[in-house]
Simulated scan of single mutants.
Amino acid sequence: MDRIAALRVFRRVIELNGFAAAARDLDLSNAAVSKIIKDLEADLGTPLILRTTRSLRLTDTGHDYFNQITRILDELGEAEDAVRSSGGEPRGVLRVSAPLSLGLVLLSPILARFAARYPQLELDVEFGDQSVDLIEGRFDLAIRGGLLQDSSLKARKLMDIERVVCASPDYLARCGTPESPEDLSGHRCLIYSLSPTPRSWVLDKDGESVRIAVDGGFRANNSLAVREAAIEGLGVALLPKIYAVDALASGRLVRVLPDWRGELHALYGVYPHHREASLKVRSLLDFLVEAVQDVLA
C-alpha cells in the first residue's frame, strides 16, 4: 500500500463527506476508494470511519488520526513546494478562487501578467461569486470582497472598495432624485442577492451611518448584472465604484446622494493558516497588492 496516497484518499473522503465525492475528486472508482480505506484500517488494526448507507462519521480514533495526518500532509506539501521553489521562483500548482465580476473588471489581466512572470507556476483560477470552502475545494488562496466572515483563515488586505449609490438619468427623470437616504425606501432599488443584507443598505457620511430598508423589482447574484439593470433605468443601485466608474464617466449612470457612500468594504486575499509560508501564495499576494495600487493610482 502506498501510505501517502492512502492518507490523501482518507483525507478527501472526510473533507468531502463521502466515498463517491472523493472518488470523483481524485478520479478514482468508488471501489478503489473503498478498498484503500479498508486496507488502511486493516493495516492500522482499527476502524477509522463508521459507514451507513446514508452517512459516514469518524470514530474517535479516526478523528484523532485525521487531525494528525492532515497536519503531516500539509507540511509535506509545503516541503515539496519549498524544494520546487528553491531557486527563488514559485513553482507547482496554485489554485485560486476569485469573484466573477471582479475577475472581468479587474483581476483577469493582473492574473495573466502574474502567470507570465512566473512560467514555472501552473495557475488554476476558478471564478464565481459564491463563497467557496478553501479546504474542500483545495484552493491555496481566495480573493474576496466585502466584510470577512471566516476568522479561521489568514487574510491580507489588497484594497478598499468604495461603493456608491447611482441610477440612470432616465430613471431619475421619471421617478425623481432621492434627496436623503430615507427617500430610497420609496424608490425601486436593485438588489445584489449575495449581499449579507441584500434588502438593507448601510450608508455613511462624515461619521454618520444610517441603515435603509430597500426593495425593488430586480435581484441578481452578480454585481455587473445589477449595474446593467441600473443603466437600463430599472432603478437605483449600490455598486462598488470600480464597477460603475466608466458608466459614471460616460453619463450612463449618475451619482445619487453624492455625499453618502456605502459601508466601506475591502478586497482581501485569504488563505488557510498552513499556506502562510508558501512562496507561491506570498508571491501572488505581493503581486496583487502592487497591481491594484497601480490601477487605483
Score class of each variant (00 low, 15 high):
residue 163 R to H: 10
residue 211 R to A: 14
residue 189 C to M: 11
residue 181 P to N: 07
residue 164 V to K: 05
residue 193 S to A: 14
residue 184 L to P: 03
residue 207 G to Q: 08
residue 100 L to C: 05
residue 221 N to K: 13
residue 114 F to Q: 08
residue 207 G to L: 09
residue 212 I to T: 03
residue 211 R to C: 10
residue 187 H to P: 01
residue 189 C to T: 14
residue 183 D to L: 06
residue 200 S to M: 09
residue 155 A to H: 15
residue 205 K to I: 06
residue 105 V to E: 11
residue 132 V to D: 01
residue 218 F to Y: 13
residue 218 F to H: 11
residue 195 S to T: 00
residue 193 S to E: 11
residue 113 R to F: 07
residue 202 V to I: 13
residue 140 D to G: 04
residue 114 F to N: 09
residue 156 R to K: 12
residue 101 S to V: 00
residue 199 R to W: 08
residue 145 G to W: 00
residue 180 S to P: 01
residue 129 D to R: 02
residue 125 V to Y: 04
residue 108 S to N: 14
residue 224 L to I: 13
residue 155 A to P: 07
residue 136 E to Q: 13
residue 212 I to A: 02
residue 127 F to D: 01
residue 165 V to C: 12
residue 106 L to A: 12
residue 187 H to K: 13
residue 156 R to Y: 04
residue 164 V to Y: 05
residue 187 H to G: 00
residue 188 R to M: 07
residue 201 W to L: 13
residue 125 V to I: 15
residue 175 C to P: 01
residue 167 A to K: 05
residue 145 G to Q: 02
residue 124 D to Q: 15
residue 219 R to Q: 14
residue 104 L to C: 08
residue 146 G to P: 03
residue 196 P to C: 06
residue 106 L to N: 03
residue 186 G to H: 11
residue 162 E to L: 14
residue 103 G to R: 01
residue 110 I to A: 06
residue 159 M to F: 12
residue 136 E to S: 11
residue 122 E to F: 12
residue 208 E to W: 04
residue 107 L to K: 02
residue 149 Q to D: 10
residue 168 S to F: 05
residue 191 I to S: 10
residue 166 C to T: 13
residue 155 A to M: 10
residue 171 Y to I: 08
residue 189 C to A: 14
residue 217 G to Q: 12
residue 99 P to S: 03
residue 165 V to P: 00
residue 192 Y to H: 15
residue 133 D to K: 01
residue 220 A to R: 14
residue 215 D to A: 14
residue 190 L to N: 10
residue 109 P to W: 07
residue 168 S to W: 03
residue 119 P to H: 11
residue 223 S to R: 14
residue 155 A to S: 15
residue 198 P to K: 09
residue 105 V to C: 06
residue 174 R to V: 11
residue 125 V to L: 07
residue 114 F to K: 09
residue 173 A to L: 09
residue 143 I to W: 00
residue 98 A to H: 01
residue 135 I to E: 14
